[in-house]
Amino acid sequence: MLLKLENLSSHYGTVQALSEVNLTVNEGEIVTLIGANGAGKTTLLRVISGLVRPSKGQVAFADQRIDQLPPDEIVRMGIAHVPEGRMIFPAFTVRENLLIGGVNRLDQGRPKEEVEAEMQKDLEAIFKLFPRLEERSGQYGWSLSGGEQQMLAIGRGLMAKPKLLLLDEPSLGLAPFLVKEVFSIVQTIRDQGTAVLLVEQNARMALRAADRAYVLETGSIVVEGPAKELLHADEVRKAYLGG
C-alpha cells in the first residue's frame, strides 16, 4: 500500500473540514475522490502534502508516518501535489516552472551536475508528453491559456519524479476536448508507474478514468468502491451524474 489515511480529521478553527476519513491508494492505480464544492477534497490533499495539519488521525506513505513532516520532506519522499487552480508561477517561464518542479532533487546530497543532467532528460520526456509546452518554453507563466497552464502544472508535478501524484480538479474550467486530453494523460501517467489520487467535481469523467473511487460529502466518505461500479450505483448517479 502506497498511501493510507486513517481516521483523518481536520479543522479550520472551529469548522470541521474532514471527519474520520479512511482512504488508501495502491501502487499503479488511479484513485478518484469526488464530491461537491466545499466537501473537503482540497483540504484532504493539503493534509497529505503537509500544508495543513490534521487534528486527528494519521497519514502513512510507504509505511512511514508523514502527518507531522513539513511539505518539503513529503515531496522528497515521493508525493507531488498539483494544486487547485494550477498555481503556475506567473513570473517564471514555462521552462523555469518545470525546472522548479524538480528542485527538491538538489537537496538530496547528490552532485549538482548529475542532478541537472537528469533533470534535462526528464524535461525532454515531459516535452514529449506535452509538445505544446516545448513550443512555449520561453513564455511567461501568466501568458498561457488555461489548458496550457494545466498541462504545465501537471508537467511541473512530474518533474518531482513522484511515486504518487495528487491532482486537484485538473479539468476545472477547461473546454471538453481538453478535459478528455487531461484524463487520457492521467492514465498515461498511471501506466508509466506513478499512482494518482485524482480529485474531481467532474464525476463522470473521473469515474471512467479511475480504478477505484471515493465519494466525499461534508468531510466524510459516504461511498467507496471500484470506479466502474460507482458509475452505475444509484446513489452516485442521482447525486453526481445527473440521474
Binding site: 500544508l51 513539513p70 511539505p71 518539503d72 498555481m87 522548479i100 528542485v103 511541473r156
Partner: peptide
C-alpha cells in the same frame, strides 16, 4: 542560480513553493 530561483518562487507563491519541496 537555484537559490535565486527558489527565493523568487517563494516571492510569487509560498504554498506552491512549499509543494515544490522548497524550504520556505
Amino acid at each position: 542560480t537555484w537559490l535565486g530561483r527558489k527565493m523568487r518562487a517563494v516571492a510569487q507563491d509560498q504554498d506552491t513553493a512549499a509543494l515544490m519541496g522548497i524550504k520556505v
